[in-house]
Amino acid sequence: MIHDSQLEHWFREDVGHHDVTNQVPGETTGRLVAKESGVAAGLDAAARVFDYVGVEVTEAVDAGSRIDAGDVVLRVTGPARDILRAERIAVNVVGHASGIATHTRAAVDAAREVSDDVRIAATRKTTPGLRGIEKRAVVAGGGDTHRLDLSHMVMVKDNHVAEMGLERAVAHFRERVSFATKIEVEVEAAVDAPLAAEAGADVVLLDNMTPEETAEAVDLLPDGVLAEASGGITLETVPAYAATGVDVVSMGSLTHSAASLDYSFRTGE
């Protein structure tokens, strides 16, 4: 959900204090058109942008829809001045979100070449203020959101282990979390994976390992403990990691490196 305060910030940033450019009289219609193929996302945010200035959204494709160049993904009607003021914000948001959804779908498709079960997940490497939009875009692309924020799961990383040691760190957090909160432990060597499980990890993050090392670590884990591969995984290497037997492949690139999908906004018939 995008709050009015965020929308107000977006409009203040783009419109400024003396907008002459969009002083256009009358009523008109507008349409958001894809200039390349991909996966649509961010249309709910765009609808909120137009609604905020009193512009009616009359049509929008569903998030996750595959689109081709020339497809209209959203139509609006209302005062020309307000449509023009909102269109650039809407185009930017939809382009950014659709780029993430498209990149995510490519990763999911690559994983499905070797596994029907492995999840492709995002990370917390999101743009401040845009996490909700970016995480929903990952879902639109067929991916998993992973943690939405720090409260969703405890992740014991290398810095925690350096400060407290593996067993003490897991015990420390286990005493403080709800019964419903999982604990994930990051390891960087296959031999440490079963140690993390023995310490009480619900999920073991196999970080910056090769596919061969990842497969070795998965074999060492007991039943019931989930395995996640992460660290520099690309579209090209997704199949190799998906074939290791991990439950999750997480990729920061889904949100921090996806190129925006190209759209244009046109008014009138």
Results as ranks from 00 to 15, higher is better:
Pro222Thr: 10
Ala80Gly: 10
Asn208Glu: 01
Lys157Phe: 03
Glu186Ile: 06
Met155Asp: 03
Val203Tyr: 08
Ala199Gly: 07
Pro194Asn: 06
Ala227Asp: 09
His17Pro: 01
Ser151Gly: 09
Val108Leu: 09
Arg12Pro: 00
Val185Gly: 08
Val203Ile: 15
Ser5Gln: 08
Val185Ile: 13
Thr237Asn: 11
Glu213Asn: 05
Leu166Phe: 02
Gly26Thr: 06
Asp14Tyr: 14
Arg266Pro: 00
Ala111Pro: 12
Val72Asp: 05
Gly231Asn: 08
Gly231Phe: 00
Val94Asn: 02
Gly42His: 06
Ala240Gln: 12
Thr237Phe: 14
His152Leu: 11
Ala169Tyr: 00
Leu205Gly: 08
Asp223Phe: 13
Lys125Trp: 10
Ile133Ala: 12
Val177Trp: 03
Leu226Cys: 05
Arg12Asn: 15
Val91Asn: 09
Ser260Cys: 13
Arg112Asp: 12
Val139Thr: 10
Val170Gln: 11
Val91Leu: 15
Thr181Asn: 07
Lys157His: 10
Val24Glu: 02
Glu184Ile: 03
Leu261Met: 15
Glu188Trp: 02
Ala121Phe: 09
Glu167Asp: 12
Arg168Phe: 00
Ser5Gly: 00
Val73Lys: 04
Ala201Glu: 04
Thr127Gln: 04
Leu32His: 01
Ile67Asp: 07
Leu74Asp: 02
His96Ser: 03
Leu261Lys: 13
Asp158His: 11
Ala106Ser: 13
Leu206Val: 09
Glu216Lys: 15
Leu148Met: 14
Asp68Cys: 10
